[in-house]
């Protein structure tokens, strides 16, 4: 059932400190960024919260920059901005590949990386990338700023470790060591929700993360260990069965997700194996 929107409380923050002050006194408010998930939730009556704070106009939360070791992406950076960013193209091309496959251009123009993280859907497309890149979430509140390792950001299905009054302001991503690989298997070729997502990094060690195969994004630690220690791809595929436990839902089946996740693992390995000849 659709939510009646007229009585929902919308508070407008025009600066970050205004937003943080408001969140400090009224921590039940949901921050509104690109709203591409919020309105879907309201439309289907899945959101019970009645109070919101608009942070869309906080320019200090936008933009992409780099230093010697890190990329920094403002929480309100849209998918379109990431697609067009030369910094992303150079250091995190898998993020560009990912952003191009999120929704249509209309959603890419509005959806933000901070929103994708805060929403915490297990199907969130950017999350496997942040997991293998071992990003840090920069969360700010009136009492200060803290860096949360992305890998410990989720406490469970759509649950984050953000404290009341905290807002995601940026993501810091160490420049990934090794070859990047991303693939989304969605319900169709475009404008799709993922059924399996994989992000892989192959350098001296191997890092692998999967989306849509568990309650949150999953780092495939056992599989990584096999591959990092010189195991075969067959052994890695066996290990993967212990790392992920996909389920049946409206969009796909457990068997399909498992099979495809294994196939993607092999494809990752093949396409990142340096040419022998």
């Amino acid at each position: 059932m659709k939510t009646a929107l007229g009585n929902l409380d919308f508070a407008d923050a025009t600066t970050l400190s205004e937003a943080l002050t408001l969140l400090a006194s009224e921590p039940d408010r949901v921050p509104l960024a690109g709203c591409t998930d919020v309105y879907v939730g309201l439309n289907f009556g899945h959101i019970e919260k009645k109070r919101f704070v608009n942070i869309w106009s906080l320019s200090e939360l936008r933009g992409i920059s780099e230093n010697a070791d890190f990329l920094r992406i403002g929480a309100l950076t849209t998918y379109t901005e990431m697609i067009e960013s030369p910094i992303i193209a150079k250091f995190l091309p898998m993020m560009r590949d990912c952003a191009r496959l999120i929704g249509g251009c209309q959603v890419q123009n509005r959806g933000t990386v901070g929103g994708n993280i805060a929403n915490g859907s297990p199907a969130g497309d950017t999350l496997p990338i942040l997991a293998v890149a071992e990003a840090m979430i920069i969360a700010q509140s009136l009492s200060g700023t803290r860096k949360i390792p992305f890998l410990s950001f989720y406490a469970g299905y759509r649950k984050t470790v953000l404290l009341p009054g905290e807002l995601i302001v940026a993501i810091e991503i160490p420049k990934p060591p090794g070859a990047q690989w991303f693939r989304k298997v969605g319900t169709r070729a475009a404008n799709a929700i993922s059924k399996v997502v994989i992000a892989g990094l192959r350098g001296e060690t191997v890092r692998l993360a999967f989306g849509s195969v568990g309650p949150t994004v999953i780092r495939a630690r056992r599989t990584e260990a096999v591959l990092s220690s010189g195991g075969t791809i067959a052994q890695a595929r066996d290990a993967l069965a212990h790392d992920i436990h996909p389920i049946d839902d409206l969009r796909s089946t457990s068997r399909y997700r498992m099979q495809v996740a294994e196939n993607l693992l092999s494809a990752f390995w093949d396409s990142t194996t340096p040419n022998q000849s």
């Binding site: 249509g104 319900t187 169709r188 070729a189 404008n191 929700i193 409206l250």
Partner: peptide, 27 residues
């Protein structure tokens, strides 16, 4: 190839364009 109505206990369980998949330009 794409369009599957998921019925659960006699009721359409995927009554949204997100989950009932019709072809886009890319498909």
């Amino acid at each position: 190839l794409h369009e599957e109505v998921v019925m659960r206990n006699g009721r359409v369980a995927n009554p949204q364009l997100t989950n009932y998949i019709i072809p886009t330009t890319m498909d």
